[in-house]
Amino acid sequence: MSLSLDHVVIAVRDLERTIADYQALGFTVVPGGEHTHGASHNALIVFADGAYIELIAFRRPNPEFRWWRVLSEAGDGLVDFALLPGDIAADVAAAKARGLEIEGPTDGGRLRPDGQRLEWRTARAATSDLPFLCGDVTPRHLRVPEGDIRRHANGAIGVAGIEIAVADAGVSARRYGALLGTAVDPGAPVALGDGQSVRLLGPDRAGAALAARGEGPLSLTLRVAPGSATGDLDPARTHGVRIGRVEPDRR
Rank of each mutant, 00 (worst) to 15 (best):
G177F: 01
A51P: 03
R213T: 13
A95P: 04
K96Q: 15
R124Q: 15
P85Q: 08
P226Y: 09
D249V: 07
P203F: 09
G161I: 07
L233K: 00
D204A: 15
Q23R: 15
Q196D: 02
G214C: 09
R140C: 05
P61T: 13
K96P: 03
A183D: 15
A173V: 10
G155R: 03
K96H: 04
G147S: 07
L201P: 05
A236H: 04
E163S: 12
L133W: 08
E54M: 01
V9Y: 00
G99T: 06
D114Q: 05
G115V: 08
G50V: 04
G104H: 08
D107S: 11
V171L: 12
A156N: 11
D114V: 02
E73V: 04
A48V: 11
V9R: 00
R124C: 07
V46N: 00
G77T: 03
F58Y: 15
I162H: 01
D6G: 08
A43G: 12
T238E: 08
G38S: 10
R213S: 13
I10D: 02
T106D: 04
P131Q: 10
D107P: 10
A165M: 06
H35M: 00
E54F: 02
R174A: 11
V246W: 01
S128Q: 10
G26N: 12
D148S: 14
L133N: 06
R143H: 12
P63N: 10
Y52Q: 11
L5W: 04
L180I: 06
A123K: 10
P217V: 12
R205G: 13
P113C: 07
V190T: 13
A183P: 03
V137Y: 07
V184G: 03
G161Y: 05
P248N: 12
T28P: 04
L100W: 01
G50H: 02
Q116H: 07
R205K: 14
L100A: 03
E16S: 13
D168V: 07
D249C: 07
R223L: 10
A74W: 04
V8R: 00
P131W: 09
G240Y: 01
V137T: 14
E73C: 01
E73Q: 14
S219I: 04
Q23Y: 00
V137H: 03
V29A: 11
V246E: 15
W68H: 15
P145Q: 15
V12K: 02
